[in-house]
């Protein structure tokens, strides 16, 4: 198990390195930051000075190594707009996005898996068909439209929930979380639901397909031949088998929810990372964009690492195949 984790970490480091090169090349090497940094009326001497100060006269590979060196220290430059450190700017917004994504993930798991299994067990009844049709709708609804419709219904018409913003938060380790303050929960409901709709449908369909496949397996028939109750067969034998693909997909989806909750955050004016990214792109705030990309890369790599480890606890064949090699 230890060797397995160690090797996965090595692979993750390599992925981060490769992505750093890509991000560096695409953002730093293309276009000229001098044009943005200096006033348009600056003369040639001022330009040369700035180029030398920023190290832009050095060969690309030296610049890249400098970038990597700074990256290793967690230094990705200062925001042009806010003047503060880009990484801490983004990380300051991380809790808002993180809790949104986690609530959505929990919703997806605890709504999607039971619904999908129910549909899989009753695939030929109206229950199964309704669930599966519903999941297609959940799949195809555009995120922003669903969010706006929710605002119309629950905030404007019924006035049950606030239409946007983050509301009161509670503090943990100096970070602000809405989850810790019940007064902030109403603000969290609609954005989290909006973010979750697609994931719920996805998990439902995965659980449905997995259940239908598992039910045809000999081990289910053997379990019935042992005289086990339906609850035990579905809750243990089937569930544990279908969890493997679902965990993989949810892991990837958690990453994408954190990184790309942009639309939902924009619709609900949720002050998360996505909102910051959109604003930074609009203002050409390069350090923030680069820092954002690198953080997302790190996040994805980390989540995939977690999924792989979780995987090996779910599926003994993965663990042992690795231990043997």
């Amino acid at each position: 198990m230890f060797a397995f984790v160690l090797r996965r970490i090595g692979q993750s480091a390599f992925v981060v390195l490769a992505m750093a090169a890509l991000v560096f090349l695409s953002v730093y090497a293309i276009g000229n930051p001098i044009d943005i940094l200096l006033a348009p009326d600056a003369d040639q001497r001022e330009r040369d000075e700035a180029i030398a100060r920023l190290g832009l006269d050095k060969p690309v590979w030296v610049q890249f190594l400098t970038f990597l060196g700074n990256l290793a220290h967690g230094d990705l430059g200062k925001s042009f707009v806010f003047g503060s450190d880009a990484v801490s700017l983004i990380l300051g917004r991380l809790p808002a996005t993180l809790e949104l994504a986690i609530v959505a993930l929990v919703l997806a798991t605890f709504i999607g898996i039971p619904l999908g299994m129910l549909a899989g067990l009753r695939s030929n009844t109206w229950v199964g068909r309704t669930v599966m049709t519903g999941s297609i709708i959940g799949f195809s609804l555009p995120n922003f439209w669903f969010g706006i419709m929710m605002i119309l219904l629950f905030a404007v018409e019924l006035q049950w929930l606030p239409s946007g913003g983050r509301g009161p938060t509670g503090k943990l380790f100096g970070l602000e979380f809405s989850l810790l303050n019940p007064a902030g929960w109403p603000n969290l409901v609609m954005p989290a639901l909006t973010l979750a709709v697609y994931k719920v449908s996805l998990v439902t369909r995965l659980a449905y397909a997995g259940t239908r496949e598992a039910l045809l397996q000999e081990y289910v028939r053997f379990a019935r031949a042992k005289g086990l109750s339906q609850t035990r067969i579905v809750g243990v034998h089937v569930l544990k088998n279908i969890l493997i693909p679902i965990v993989t997909v949810l892991g990837l989806e958690l990453g994408s929810m954190i990184a790309f909750a942009v639309v939902t955050e924009t619709v609900f004016a949720w002050p998360g990372m996505g909102k910051l990214l959109i604003d930074s792109i609009a203002r050409l705030d390069r350090p923030v964009i680069v820092a954002y990309l690198m953080i997302v890369v790190g996040l994805f790599t980390f989540i995939n690492l977690l999924v792989d480890i979780l995987y090996s606890t779910l599926d003994p064949r993965v663990r042992l195949a690795d231990a043997g090699s």
Partner: peptide
């Protein structure tokens, strides 16, 4: 009544001890 099935590779659940 107990039953023994044809393919021992398939009758035991692969993810349970």
């Amino acid at each position: 009544i107990a039953m023994i099935f044809q393919d021992p590779m398939m009758t035991l659940n692969p993810v349970l001890r």
